[in-house]
């Protein structure tokens, strides 16, 4: 969803004309926004952990239809490390911090709710 008013686009174009955007190493050394970095580290390492644990937990609960409890838990917990790796990479790759703030905690809460709902269903 791009809702930028046209004015900002013009400004962007102007800056592009006068000073070309830094690329490569120059772009990397231009990272002087500590607040954004702290947010990304928090999103990746801590909230990302909860997201991956909850995704894997949901997979684990779903697998109990086909496998024993300990087998489902082992299989999903093994995959959790792969999920976590991808979540960390995503938290640093995505340009939009807002999207990350919505998706990572939101995803974790949704998966948690769904898996507790499913687990309750299984035990009944």
């Amino acid at each position: 969803m791009k809702l930028d008013p046209p004015l900002t686009c013009v400004i962007h174009q102007d800056t592009n004309l006068t000073t070309p955007k830094p690329r490569g190493r120059a772009a990397l050394s231009a990272t002087n926004n500590p607040a954004a970095i702290v947010q990304r580290v928090l999103l990746a390492v801590l909230l990302g952990y909860f997201l991956s644990a909850e995704i894997a937990g949901l997979v684990g609960v779903s697998l109990t239809r086909f496998l024993d409890l300990s087998e489902s838990a082992t299989l999903s917990a093994m995959f959790a490390f792969i999920i976590y790796t991808l979540v960390i990479l995503w938290a640093f790759a995505d340009r939009s911090l807002i999207r990350l703030w919505v998706c990572i905690p939101g995803g974790a809460i949704s998966c948690y709710s769904l898996s507790t709902y499913l687990a309750a269903g299984v035990s009944i």
């Binding site: 644990a53 937990g57 300990s70 687990a119 299984v122």
Partner: peptide, 28 residues
Amino acid sequence: LIIYIAIYFAPVIDRTYGEHTNTFLQDS
């Protein structure tokens, strides 16, 4: 990392066991 699934991803095992008593170590 996978050696320590029961520690590093204990929440996954908790979710999977859900309402059941968590007897993961005994079972596996």
